[in-house]
Structure formats: structure tokens, C-alpha cells
């Protein structure tokens, strides 16, 4: 009779172990999440960066220097984002694209795709997309984050803006 009890107890312990393993497998099976916090931080950090770095701080870049010399950049005190906004206001979208192409790859990690949008109300004045080598379209990504800022500036004695600048990042 005692042997029966031992068998029953042993059986219970084995059953407990099987149940525990099952619970662990079920609970931890679906934990493959994209890096949401990193993507969100990147979006905001990128916005902070381009909203604070001024053009004169990057004027050692050959292309930026040429723009200053040519007179396309009239105010080196503009931030990067303000300068792109000014190019949009002056209908210099090609220059804005080249400027963005020159500046942004150096500050975005290669693992991320990004998009820069500048809008005047609902009108898109500038849309630049940079995909990583094997890029993912934004609408198929599982984690897309965006940060927005309001930009404005002076062009001579005229004020342009306020425009809405939006940075989107995804993997």
C-alpha cells in the first residue's frame, strides 16, 4: 500500500513538471517583439539633432561649404532642419534633397530606414526617404515611429512657415 502512495506522488511530481514546462513554453513563445523603444528614441533623437545643429557647425563638409559660397545658404545660423525648410520655401527641392542626402546618412544607424517630410498645412513640400540596403517599406514594418517639430525662418525680410517637419524611422 505504501508503494502505491509513492508511485502516485511520483506521478504527481512528474505531472507538475510537465505542466510547468508547458506553461513556460506557452508564456514565452510569443516574445519576439521589434525594438520599439529604440526606434522611438531614434526618431526623437534624430529630430533633436537636426533641430539643434547649425549649418555653420557642419560647414567643413564640402557640399555645405559650396552652398554657402554660392549663396544658396544665406544664413549659417539656421539649423539643419530650418535650412531644409528654407530650401523648400525657395522651391529649391533638388538642393534640399542633396543637402539631406549629404547630412543624414552620417547620423542615422545603418539598420534603420528613415523618412523626412515637410508639410505646409496638408501640402507636402518635401519628402525624402532613405532605405537601408535591404530596405523594408514603411507600410510593412512592425514598428514605425515619428517625431514632429514646427519649423519657420526668415528669408530676407520675409518669414516662411510655420511648416511641419516630421521624421519617421522604422526597421
Amino acid at each position: 500500500m505504501k508503494k502505491k502512495a509513492y508511485f502516485f506522488t511520483l506521478d504527481a511530481f512528474i505531472a507538475t513538471g510537465v505542466i510547468a514546462i508547458g506553461i513556460v513554453l506557452v508564456l514565452f513563445a510569443g516574445t519576439n517583439r521589434p525594438y520599439e523603444m529604440q526606434t522611438a528614441s531614434l526618431s526623437q533623437n534624430l529630430m533633436d539633432t537636426v533641430s539643434s545643429i547649425k549649418v555653420y557647425e557642419i560647414s567643413d563638409n564640402k557640399y555645405v561649404y559650396e552652398l554657402v559660397e554660392k549663396g544658396d545658404i544665406t544664413n549659417p545660423e539656421n539649423t539643419i532642419l530650418e535650412q531644409i525648410g528654407e530650401f523648400c520655401y525657395r522651391d529649391m527641392n533638388d538642393t534640399a534633397s542633396n543637402f539631406t542626402e549629404t547630412i543624414f546618412p552620417g547620423i542615422i544607424p545603418k539598420e534603420y530606414n528613415f523618412q523626412l517630410l515637410i508639410k505646409d498645412s496638408d501640402i507636402i513640400k518635401f519628402n525624402y526617404i532613405k532605405l537601408k540596403d535591404i530596405g523594408t517599406l514603411r507600410n510593412t514594418s512592425r514598428a514605425v515611429t515619428s517625431s514632429k517639430n514646427i519649423i519657420f525662418g526668415l528669408s530676407g525680410s520675409t518669414m516662411w512657415g510655420p511648416y511641419i517637419a516630421e521624421v519617421r524611422t522604422w526597421q
Partner: peptide, 22 residues
């Protein structure tokens, strides 16, 4: 078989505790 009942009862308690923990 009082011992058997006791051990079985302990096992059930253990299972319950594990389920609550997870």
C-alpha cells in the same frame, strides 16, 4: 493510506503554486 493522501495533497499545492507564480 494517509501518507499517500498527504503527498498527493502536497503535489496539488505545488502545482497550484507554480501556476500562480507564472
Amino acid at each position: 493510506n494517509k501518507k499517500g493522501m498527504f503527498f498527493t495533497f502536497m503535489s496539488i499545492l505545488l502545482v497550484t503554486a507554480l501556476m500562480l507564480a507564472f
